[in-house]
Design a protein around this nucleic acid. Sequence first.
DNA 1: CAGTGGTCTAGACCACAAG
DNA 2: TTGTGGTCTAGACCACTGG
Lengths: 232, 232
Amino acid sequence: MTADLNTWQGVRGEVLRRLNSRVWEPGDLLPTEAALAAEFGCARTTVNRALRDLASSGLLDRRRKAGTRVALNPTRHPVLRIPVIRQEIEGRGHAYGYALRSRRMAVPPADMRARLDVEPGVPLLHLTALHHADGKPYMYEDRWINTALLPAALSVDFDVLGANEWLVANVPFSGGDFRFMATGASRAEAEMLACAPGEALFVIDRTTHGDHGPATTARLTFAPGYRMSAQI
Amino acid sequence: MTADLNTWQGVRGEVLRRLNSRVWEPGDLLPTEAALAAEFGCARTTVNRALRDLASSGLLDRRRKAGTRVALNPTRHPVLRIPVIRQEIEGRGHAYGYALRSRRMAVPPADMRARLDVEPGVPLLHLTALHHADGKPYMYEDRWINTALLPAALSVDFDVLGANEWLVANVPFSGGDFRFMATGASRAEAEMLACAPGEALFVIDRTTHGDHGPATTARLTFAPGYRMSAQI
DNA sequence: CAGTGGTCTAGACCACAAG
DNA sequence: TTGTGGTCTAGACCACTGG
């Protein structure tokens, strides 16, 4: 029993079936939307949505005039769900705690300056904080904020409110990039996160772009045992 | 100058602007699609696509009858691009190498058995392999394949072809989940990956589901220095 | 039950890029 | 130049679910 070819999910299923069964092989050119619509007996719009969805999953390559091809590089595109840290902790049933450790204007090191795309020698707002779960260290946050783009950050009381939360609520969002890695705990990190020096820690480097450029960059270092998940 | 409100990107931009400027605050109910379409002077379809896109980004919650609300939990949904390992290495200009280390039927440990949802005591195909970049160890792969769902795997010559590549090309795809973490290198891992025992390693646990259930699960352990990136 | 989003249709015009 | 995907429209029916 084949799916209903009058629904876009049904069309996607049928196309997927042909991809999996090698009716269409990697690199092959698919029929045009109009042709498929005729074959399936549905509107071109329906075929369009199905193929667009498959393309967004990385299974197809679509280009105007060139047509639709089976992707040669089958990459998967899992979607991460990255919650605000407090919700992540509370969602697991733990009590959330937050402690600002330092807050000052400072000239950023070269790598941070590059990420935020600012001139050398310009001081930025530098915050460090520790997040707790049930009183135990959970994550260490080292953040730089471009106060030229976010002057409002200067008047926020980060002693009470996590920079994370303030930012997600107040930074006009336009994009961001993430890097994930593993590092051995430095002595300072080991002390803050209550672990042994050299122990493997999960790290997220995250830069968030506002409407006028990179607004803030943060390094989040998690206590041992942290796991991040994603799904397709 | 506001964007063209007759395009779905334009409508998305305008809605985004109202979200950022707190015209609509978290938890607020937005006007219906029909109302917005009337206000913007476009078709409801156009509004629908814009709101659907924002909902898929996690900024809105949509439910039939209940309407569209500004998400209370502002989570971001970055999209990972996970390439086939060979393409990842070759894409960086390095020579790719692959060496199968073991291949045998074996009864999986409890955690793997749980991930693949099979009965206790059932033997599965177990593969271990090492992937190289320019002759240096890059990633260690420890994979279990449910041969009940993928009998074809038994006749594949994994000495030559990476299981990764065979699977992405041959497993009817229906979904998967990923977990990312940092671990200290065991003595065996350290030897294989040419690093010091205890050194921090990036690990991906990945389970891929076929049409009839979990088909394969793999633990990918990367040599020190590996970074994974994602973007919004 | 009834309101809201989910989706389909048929037709149309447009933007882009291959040749 | 011309074919292909990208998108808009107006109208319609349906599915889900809150009240």
